[in-house]
Amino acid sequence: MFVNQILAFAAVVVVSLVVSAEGSEFAFYKLSLRWPTTLCIAAPQTCKSPIPDIFTIHGLWPTLKDGTNVPPYNPLTNNCNPNPATNIVPKLASIRPRLEKKWPAIAQGNTNEGFWEKEWENHGKCSDYPQDPLTYFTSALNLAENSKYDPLKVLGVKPSDTAHDIETLIQNVKRNVGFYPQISCSMPIKGTKQLYLKEIRFCFTRGKPPSVLQNCPDDMDNLCRSVQPPQRTVKIPTPITINSAHNVTWELLASSA
Rank of each mutant, 00 (worst) to 15 (best):
N142S: 12
G156E: 01
S256L: 15
S256I: 01
K118Y: 10
G124R: 10
V157L: 15
C80W: 09
P84Y: 07
Q194H: 13
D218F: 12
I236M: 06
A140L: 09
P84A: 11
P181K: 01
R206T: 07
P75I: 15
V12C: 15
P188Q: 06
A43W: 13
N110A: 11
V13G: 03
I95R: 00
N142Q: 07
P230W: 04
T233D: 08
P75C: 05
L92C: 10
T77C: 05
P62F: 06
Y180S: 07
K158S: 14
K208T: 15
I183K: 06
I166P: 09
G23E: 07
R34W: 08
A93T: 12
E121Y: 04
N146M: 00
A257D: 11
R225C: 07
L143T: 03
R232A: 02
E121T: 13
N74Q: 01
E199C: 03
C126M: 14
G67C: 03
K101M: 11
K190Q: 09
D218W: 14
S16K: 06
P90H: 07
S211Q: 07
P44Y: 10
C40S: 05
N222Q: 06
V248I: 06
N176W: 00
P82H: 04
T241F: 07
Y129P: 13
P90G: 10
P71S: 11
K208D: 15
C216T: 00
P151R: 02
W250F: 12
R232K: 03
E121D: 04
L223G: 05
A8Y: 00
S186I: 02
R201P: 04
C126Q: 15
D218C: 09
C47N: 08
A107Q: 15
C224S: 03
T37E: 14
D132F: 06
T77Y: 08
I57W: 04
E113P: 03
S255P: 00
E117N: 14
Q108C: 03
T56F: 02
G178N: 05
K65Q: 12
Q194R: 10
Y180F: 07
T46Y: 10
L152F: 02
S184Q: 12
S24H: 04
L31V: 01
S186V: 08
Y136E: 13
T138M: 11
Q231R: 11
P52D: 02
I189L: 06
W35N: 01
R96D: 09
H123K: 08
I183P: 04
Q108S: 03
I106V: 15
V212Q: 12
A21C: 03
A11E: 05
R175F: 09
P188I: 14
L92A: 08
P188C: 13
L31P: 02
V89C: 03
L31F: 01
N122D: 13
G114W: 04
W61V: 03
P84L: 08
W35Q: 02
P97T: 07
A42Y: 10
L143A: 12
A254G: 04
K193T: 09
R175I: 10
A105I: 12
F28H: 15
